[in-house]
Amino acid sequence: MNRYLPLALLAFGILAFATLMLVIAPGVQIARHSVPPQLEPYTEQQARGRAQYVGLGCVYCHSQQPRSPDQAPDGERGWGRPAVAADYVYDQPHQLGTMRTGPDLLNVGARLPSEAWQLTHLYQPRAIFGWSVMPAYPFLFEIKPAAEPGDTVVVLPEAFAPEAGVVVARQEALDLTAYLLSLDRTYPAPADALRDEGYATMESGS
């Protein structure tokens, strides 16, 4: 090959084609699906909590996309029904994730709906699960000599409690918990649900 311009044009054309196939065409297809009526936009506090979730990098260990029973026992683990494209219309940035160092969280609000549990777990995961490798987030909390009116005190076993005073959730921890509790896509999947059915066809089709 001896000329720059044809090389550049063809190289660009191939990538433009790939963009059409991987970005534009699925985008058009996804946009034509209706929003499930039960899915609600995030409240202001939930959105702030989501920003914490994004900023702290929770996605690097937690996916938000339960698989279908044709592929994996996600449903049996309580992670929810198979996720569909319409479940994510209010998500920006998306947090689908590619890793399960920890469990899937798309329905954690339905599975673990206690604010007190979530706060304890964020302050020190090993206070609940000795085997956990999740980071502790003590910087989302503060230790006070005594709780003041309006404070949310974190419930802790003695081994993890401070020597004096109480652990109180900062606003960031309360926001993050509000977001986690909002994660609930247990409503039935819409009739025109869009998702990768490749594993279902593998079993019934061949």
Partner: peptide
Amino acid sequence: SQVGIHHLIGGPVPTWV
């Protein structure tokens, strides 16, 4: 240029892609 969506196998994206 077209392999990227193998990161979303089994996910909430169209089967064909």
